[in-house]
Amino acid sequence: MSALMTVEDVRHLRTGAHFLACTIDPTAIYVYAEMIEKAMENRVLELISIDELATDDLVVAIGMVTQGLLIADMPPVGDEFIGCIRAIEANLGRQVRAIYSLAAANINGIVPLMVGLQSSLPVIDSDPMGRVFPLISQTTLNIGHVPISPIALMGVTGERAVVEAENPQRAETLVRALVTEMGGWAATAMYPCSAGQMREHGVHGSISRMIRIGEILDAETSVGRKFQQLAEFLGATRIARARVSHVEGLSRPSDLGLPALPSSVTLVDERSGQIIRLEIQNEILLALVDGAIAAAVPDIVSLLNSEHGTVVNIDDVRVGDVIDVLKITAAAQWYSEAGLDLAEPKAFGIPIEHPRRQHA
């Protein structure tokens, strides 16, 4: 069912998008949330279910692609995404009927709300990741063989491009090169598809889920109560409550052209003595407990302050901090063979298979 979003929804969405990414730098999420709240003073923002669209309606993914430049350092001026949507429409000769988030976390979890306000297009409560991944080819639409292109881009300097590439990995390479040349980030519209394709291959309830997570974490309740509600709502489990003993930057190389800040964090569970190790590449990719895999991408690993129940930014982790390390299961599509091929640790250059992979 469609619903008109409120300012409170946006604030909770901001927190939920932050939690599901446990991002390096959440500044852009908060900048966009403020912009959206201001724009909602005189505009209506409609959130719809994919089922409310006709099967052949054209829908398109909206998202930021970054390559070295933090969006908060040079924010968009406002017309970039509208230009991308118009370029897709011109390329396909069809009108876009609704937009959806490229990812259900971090900045791309919230950007489509601003675009919905600017364009008067409804925002679909679905996405093709169910979390955030660094590569535009790492989507459930790719798993379902839905074409990624045409891809429209508009960068920092106002330059525009349209990429047509059948292979998603090749599209990734071309888009990254363009984003670098365009100044470090680009607004993009991609994966233009029918509502029927999105219904079949997307992850649904994405925005509603982020809002509900935000409601839980923003509430004036105890950390224990917050965790209990996250467990009930998301099936979240606590890997450990542990104290940070070591933070190591560039602990392993990133040689696959991935947008990454490789690092590792070691923690000690002071009650059990267990050693927890987190391997990070923008997001947390791997959590080990005494050397055994406790969580591995595509699992979602997030960090909460053990005293306040607030999200801990990866970049803010310091020796001596006591942190709750949480695991959330990703969308079911990611645990298929095709999904694991795209998103298990090996896809990020870590020579480990996900424990769920089935061997013939």
Rank of each mutant, 00 (worst) to 15 (best):
residue 253 P to V: 13
residue 304 L to V: 06
residue 286 L to W: 00
residue 224 G to F: 04
residue 234 L to T: 06
residue 100 Y to S: 00
residue 274 Q to W: 10
residue 247 V to G: 05
residue 88 I to C: 12
residue 281 Q to W: 06
residue 21 A to E: 10
residue 135 L to E: 08
residue 287 A to E: 08
residue 6 T to Y: 07
residue 70 L to G: 05
residue 252 R to I: 09
residue 107 I to R: 03
residue 338 A to K: 15
residue 288 L to N: 04
residue 152 A to M: 07
residue 184 G to Q: 11
residue 37 E to M: 13
residue 186 A to L: 10
residue 322 V to D: 10
residue 46 E to N: 12
residue 283 E to Q: 14
residue 341 D to E: 11
residue 53 L to I: 10
residue 232 E to I: 02
residue 124 I to A: 07
residue 97 R to E: 10
residue 64 M to P: 00
residue 272 S to P: 03
residue 282 N to W: 04
residue 193 C to Y: 01
residue 299 D to E: 12
residue 256 L to Q: 15
residue 317 V to N: 10
residue 204 H to Y: 11
residue 110 I to K: 02
residue 340 L to D: 02
residue 51 D to G: 14
residue 92 L to H: 13
residue 8 E to L: 14
residue 320 G to N: 13
residue 44 V to W: 04
residue 287 A to I: 05
residue 214 G to I: 04
residue 320 G to T: 09
residue 149 S to P: 03
residue 137 S to H: 11
residue 234 L to Q: 07
residue 270 E to N: 10
residue 29 I to A: 01
residue 207 I to R: 05
residue 16 G to A: 14
residue 25 D to E: 13
residue 14 R to G: 01
residue 87 A to T: 14
residue 84 C to G: 06
residue 56 D to Y: 08
residue 166 E to W: 09
residue 175 V to P: 02
residue 157 T to R: 15
residue 178 L to T: 11
residue 130 G to A: 06
residue 187 A to D: 11
residue 245 S to G: 07
residue 243 R to K: 15
residue 329 T to A: 13
residue 24 I to D: 11
residue 33 A to K: 12
residue 252 R to N: 05
residue 73 D to E: 07
residue 142 N to R: 12
residue 310 T to P: 00
residue 227 F to I: 15
residue 23 T to F: 05
residue 184 G to E: 03
residue 166 E to N: 08
residue 208 S to Q: 03
residue 214 G to R: 02
residue 164 E to H: 12
residue 37 E to N: 12
residue 187 A to C: 12
residue 127 D to S: 10
residue 136 I to Y: 05
residue 220 E to Y: 03
residue 103 A to E: 15
residue 82 I to P: 00
residue 127 D to V: 04
residue 231 A to Q: 06
residue 211 I to N: 03
residue 173 T to N: 09
residue 266 T to N: 06
residue 258 L to A: 08
residue 336 S to A: 11
residue 182 M to A: 12
residue 79 D to G: 15
residue 81 F to C: 11
residue 68 G to R: 09
residue 325 V to W: 06
residue 34 E to T: 09
residue 320 G to C: 12
residue 66 T to N: 10
residue 96 V to F: 09
residue 77 V to E: 08
residue 267 L to K: 06
residue 130 G to S: 08
residue 33 A to G: 08
residue 188 T to K: 07
residue 55 T to I: 11
residue 28 A to T: 15
residue 116 G to E: 04
residue 171 A to R: 04
residue 258 L to K: 07
residue 90 A to E: 15
residue 346 K to F: 01
residue 90 A to S: 15
residue 128 P to L: 09
residue 9 D to A: 05
residue 110 I to R: 05
residue 71 I to E: 08
residue 360 A to T: 06
residue 215 E to P: 04
residue 145 H to A: 13
